[in-house]
Simulated assay, not measured.
Amino acid sequence: MTSAIASLIALVSAHPGWAYATIFLAAMLEALPVAGSFVPGSTVILGLSALIGSGSLELLPVLASAAVGAVIGDGLAYWTGHRAKRAILQAWPLSAYPYVVARSEEFFERRGALAVFLARFVPPVRAFVPVTAGALGMPPQRFFPINVAAIALWAPLHVVPGLLAGSALKQWGTTLHHHLAALAVIVVALGVVAFAIRQYLHRADDPKDRIKDRIKVI
C-alpha cells in the first residue's frame, strides 16, 4: 500500500492537475459505505497535500477538493439511506458487515446529531453513519449543516499536516516520495486523535457490549 501511494505521489508530482481530482475522489470514496473501509483516502489526502509545500499544488483548491468530495460522498450515502429507509441496512453489501452496521446504528441512536459530527473523524464508522442517519429518518435540514461543519474541520486537519510535512521536506532539500516515513508519523498522530475520540465515545456505554446483550436477550 505504501509503495502504491508513493507511486501515486510521484505521478501527480509530474502532473499536478491530476492531484485535485485524485483528492476529490479519495475523499468521496472514503465516505461511501463499504468502499470507505478499503480506500485509504486520508493517507492519499495527506500525501498529496505535501505537494502544497513544494509549490506543486495550491492550498485552497486542495482544501476545496477534499471538502467537496467528502460532502458529495456523505450526501450520496445519506440520500441512499433516506430513500431506502431501514431496509438498506440489511441489504447487500451492508449485510456483509453486520457488526459495523449494528455499531453505527447504536452509535447514531445514542449520540444523535453528535454522531454525525464525530463519525467523520472515526473510521470505519465514518463510512456507515451517513447512510444510517438517512435510513433512521434524520431530516436533511438537520443532517447537512452538522455534516458540513464536521467536514469544514476535517479537511484542514488532513491537509495542513501534509502541507507542513511537504514544507519541511523542501527545506531539507529532499524529495517527497523518498520520505514517506514523515507522512507516516502524521498518519499515526491523526490515528491517535481518532482513537482518543473513540475511547471517549465508548467510556459511557460500549456499543459492542450492548450488541452482545441484545443477542443474549434474543
Rank of each mutant, 00 (worst) to 15 (best):
A26W: 14
T80Q: 10
W172V: 11
A127I: 10
D205T: 12
P145F: 00
L60W: 13
L163R: 08
F128R: 08
L60T: 12
L25E: 04
F117A: 01
R142E: 06
L46Y: 07
T80C: 04
R198N: 13
Y99C: 10
F24L: 14
T2M: 11
A27F: 07
A26C: 06
N147K: 01
G41H: 05
H158L: 11
R86F: 05
A115E: 02
A10Q: 11
I9F: 03
A96D: 12
D74H: 06
A182E: 04
W18Q: 11
A115M: 02
E106D: 12
A10I: 02
A204R: 13
W172E: 14
A91P: 10
P161K: 03
A115D: 02
V125H: 02
Y97C: 10
R86L: 15
S3L: 13
K208Y: 11
Y20K: 10
E30T: 12
F117K: 00
I52C: 06
S49W: 04
F24P: 02
L57Q: 09
H202M: 15
G69D: 10
T2R: 15
G166F: 05
L183K: 03
L201P: 06
S104L: 11
I5M: 10
V193G: 08
H82P: 11
R111I: 07
L32W: 04
A150G: 00
W79K: 08
K216F: 15
P40K: 05
A155D: 01
V217H: 13
V131A: 08
F38C: 03
Q199E: 15
A127Q: 07
V34A: 00
V125F: 10
A26N: 03
F24E: 03
H178S: 15
V129W: 02
Y200C: 15
V44F: 05
A64E: 09
G47T: 06
S54Q: 11
I5D: 03
P139D: 09
L76H: 08
A35N: 05
S95C: 04
V39K: 07
G69Y: 09
L153S: 00
A113E: 07
G75Q: 10
M28R: 01
I197T: 14
G17Y: 00
L29I: 12
G36N: 05
D74Q: 06
F38N: 12
L76K: 04
V122W: 02
L169S: 05
P33N: 00
A184R: 10
I186W: 03
S167C: 00
W172Y: 13
G17N: 09
I146H: 00
M28A: 15
G36C: 10
K212P: 01
